[in-house]
């Protein structure tokens, strides 16, 4: 029993209002925390070098200094780096989705010998830190180069191969959950309606799995686009991706912070664009299976 008299007690709508306001304040704080580095990246890209090294942090640049965005292209072959990144991430995503969607489908629909073991093995590859397989991978590449005569290091196919080794298992797990949410009765109806198993997969299942495939594809793209460890060792010279190239702004004598931030801002644009374009699919892909169909 509350000791407060009736007229001082909160009505249930009042309680809801306070709970709502509290939740919003927490969300805004989390959002600020998440967006702060991005804001700093953007404003630094508009600062002059002299302003950056003044004591104290300024949250708003005194003047918008757009030269950073022009000068950065002249200092290093950023366009090449950028294209390399797009090629590597794009091809990795395509290969990964092709392999993983078929694998995930068979995981979801068929029973085969060793299915559980295979599933666990795939999952366990995600638990091995990349740095552990870096040297074995490098040795493997060197062996292939020496014994088979196929150039592997510093090539597109080499780095795409490496990225596929850890994005495919991830994508299989993500898509498998998505395929599980698509009722098998739909395929059975299609098979009775005149489809072969393959036709049922391409005409019924894949179109329905599209949100999941889009979400998975985006994650794979981001993983490949942001990868630094393997790229720093095995993707140099002609195939240097943006994530590595951008480090060249840090030279022996000085670091071109403002131009580096300008380059970083530009490099975030494609990912931002993907998020905006596929927002609906990504959200529904991430929440797949959370509600009863």
């Amino acid at each position: 029993m509350s000791v407060l008299p009736e007229e001082f007690r909160l009505s249930s709508s009042g309680r809801d209002l306070i709970a709502d306001a509290f939740a919003k304040v927490v969300l805004v704080l989390v959002l600020l925390f998440a967006l702060f580095p991005i804001w700093m990246m953007i404003i630094t890209s508009f600062k002059q070098r002299s302003e950056l090294f003044q004591s104290g942090v300024t949250l708003i640049p005194q003047a918008f200094h757009v030269e950073n965005y022009i000068n950065m292209w002249n200092r290093f072959p950023l366009v090449d780096y950028f294209l390399n990144s797009l090629i590597i991430s794009g091809v990795t995503t395509i290969i990964c989705l092709l392999v993983a969607s078929l694998a995930a489908y068979s995981f979801s629909r068929y029973d085969f010998r060793g299915k559980d073991l295979f599933g666990l093995t795939i999952l366990s590859t995600q638990m091995i830190p990349g740095v552990l397989i870096l040297i074995p991978m490098f040795m493997l590449f060197t062996m292939i180069q020496q014994d088979v005569g196929i150039q592997m290091t510093n090539t597109y196919h080499g780095i795409i191969f490496i990225y596929s080794t850890f994005t495919v298992p991830f994508a299989i797990w993500m898509l498998r959950g998505y395929f599980d949410t698509i009722p098998t009765a739909l395929e059975e109806a299609a098979r009775i309606d005149g489809c072969t198993r393959t036709e049922a997969l391409f005409r019924i299942v894949l179109p329905l799995a599209l949100p999941g495939i889009a979400a998975t594809g985006m994650f794979v793209f981001i993983i490949a686009f942001n990868e630094v460890l393997f790229a720093s060792v095995m993707a140099n010279n002609d195939v240097t991706p943006f994530a590595i190239g951008i480090q060249e702004f840090s030279t022996n004598t000085q670091t071109y912070w403002t131009e580096m931030m300008a380059a970083a801002t530009v490099s975030s644009l494609p990912l931002l664009l993907i998020f905006v374009l596929f927002q609906k699919q990504i959200v529904s892909g991430l929440t797949a299976g959370s509600v009863k169909q």
Binding site: P183, A185, L186, E188, A189, A190, R191, I192, D193, G194, C195, T196, I204
Partner: peptide, 17 residues
């Protein structure tokens, strides 16, 4: 194969595409 049996089926959950 199901498609070669000249049948049509109605499912419990309807299975509409």
């Amino acid at each position: 194969e199901p498609r070669d049996r000249d049948i049509a089926m109605v499912f419990q959950n309807y299975a509409l595409y």
